[in-house]
Design a protein around this nucleic acid. Structure first.
Lengths: 185, 185
DNA sequence: TGGATAACTGACACCATGTCAGCCCTACCA
DNA sequence: TGGTAGGGCTGACATGGTGTCAGTTATCCA
């Protein structure tokens, strides 16, 4: 409020309370994440490629809005309403990811296992990594975070050609440089 | 303090402040976790088996002390000293896990990748899962949590015979029943 | 200019956390 | 038995963060 030049009570004209601000902030980030996740979740085209794409945008959003994610996740335990919002946010991903996994298992491209707990595990990994890596001003390297979680997701869901996919992908990522592209061709 | 029958100030005779209590609680849980992790970290015997064992005891400890883990992780953002303790706690695992992965990569039983970010990702997954599953009184099923994180760890680190290892393991876990064991033999 | 509506604020109330001077009670001693 | 030293404990207070409200100022329109 000092930075805004307004008084503290004015804040309460725009938000119910401090946690109301958190909810608003989360809503803004949520759309970006849901948007990016759609690529893989809609289940069209190549599974590996679309997962790579979805996780890439997830990391991008996390990189840009990391402090917001950390603020919300830090504040959540202090307010039952916000905690519910945060848990619902994470939980909704658990369910759609689980559903996507189940589809891939029917297709036979993903090993058979109970999809919901694994979805939960992978999502908690993403959330924890993004907050840890990008939550504070001194941010970690975006690409190594992406490479790490992408490897884990691929190894778990599409274990058949992880290394091929990952080496292609990192070669692709590494080349805004033309010479490399020409060498590939 | 109401439950103890003592007055609130008495609390401060035993702890510096509320976060001091958290540190003490964490210390107690820490030994159990470090103990269990040693099996895999010392790197003797079969890698897959020792990882299974370490994760099993990790889940056991998490199941028993889940509320403490949640309490510490919830309180950490409110106090810079506690936050540092918590981050150091998690970070120390990142380093030893990363070192263990590097050894397995030299042996050729783990694919080549930057071990530290992957270690971080797997550890955040564990922490997030344990807190989510066991942090509140109505706890999730212990075995499905174990199966989920075990699958992710194995798929990522020892991808060559995940399904064999996991089916053996779940058969072993599932049989306090004698008939099954006899069938196996 | 008058008057209504929106924007804003000073001052207050409330609660959680932490502190401190002093009380009580036990054990030990003369 | 009476006195006293010391540890254990507490009532009462101080502080800071969060939220509220009556009242003031600014803006816009008739």
């Amino acid at each position: 409020m000092t930075d805004t030049g307004l008084s503290r009570p004015t804040f309460y004209l725009y938000f119910n309370d401090l946690h109301g601000l958190m909810e608003t902030l989360l809503d803004e980030v949520k759309v970006g994440i849901v948007e990016g996740a759609r690529t893989w979740l809609t289940n069209k085209g190549d599974a590996v490629l679309s997962l790579q794409q979805s996780l890439t945008t997830l990391v991008d959003v996390g990189y840009k809005h990391g402090p917001i994610l950390k603020a919300v996740s830090d504040a959540a335990p202090n307010d039952s309403r916000l905690e519910h919002v945060w848990e619902t946010f994470l939980g909704s991903f658990d369910e759609v990811v689980s559903a996507r996994i189940a589809e891939d298992q029917l297709k036979g491209i993903t090993p058979d296992f109970d999809p919901l707990p694994v979805a939960r595990a992978l999502n908690r990994m993403d959330a924890g990594m993004l907050i840890q890596a990008f939550g504070t001003p001194k941010k970690a390297d975006k690409n190594s975070v992406l490479m790490a979680i992408l490897r884990v997701w691929l190894s778990t869901l599409y274990p058949f050609d992880v290394d091929a996919a990952l080496s292609d992908f990192s070669a692709f990522k590494g080349t805004t440089d033309e010479t490399d592209i020409h060498k590939k061709q």
